[in-house]
Amino acid sequence: MKTDDLIALLAQDAPLTARLGDRLRLGVLAALLLAGLLFGAAIGVRPDLGAAMASDRFLFKFVVTIALTVSAGILVFRIGRPGVPLRVPAWWLLSPLVLAVAAALAELLAVPSDAWGARMIGENASHCLTMIPLLSIVPLACLLHALRYGAPERPGLAGAVAGLFASGIAATLYASSCTDDSPLFILLWYPMAIALVTVAGWLAGRRLLQW
């Protein structure tokens, strides 16, 4: 085929039916809705939610998980677009970690050292390690599907960012059901669950987001 013939061919396929931005907005909406529905139906918020709302430790969990969701979300909307710089927004990914570390240090100061272990190990560690990844599956699928309309320079990295965003949604939902509120618990177990999802996203991205 001559290149001119190929151009004639491409020109006839000019109209664009799906744009990345629209797909991503739709994907995020679907991810939030479906994960929320699944959470409401299968897990649900903790019974003492009203009382927990008065606890700084409980509320701070959401500061951390929402920081993760928002910083990863900003990247999700950029990473599929060639030529759009990523470096500066990528630094924001450190914000949830910095927040969690700072809160954990404050906790170490506020709580006597013989209580550190119990607070860190908590009561729901295995629940945390299974629920966050399980709640992430559907949001991750929604985002990967949307990112297929993008052209990420590093498909694995794009998948990993989608994994961070999906686990941010999942961790936010899960935090409202979990009764372990200590920042020590958050800093130990949440990153493990999030790392699992991120690696899954990386592997899936390498396969699904090649172009």
Partner: peptide, 9 residues
């Protein structure tokens, strides 16, 4: 370029 033009903002 053609198949990925959806990624241009």
């Amino acid at each position: 370029i053609h198949l990925k033009r959806s990624s241009w903002d």
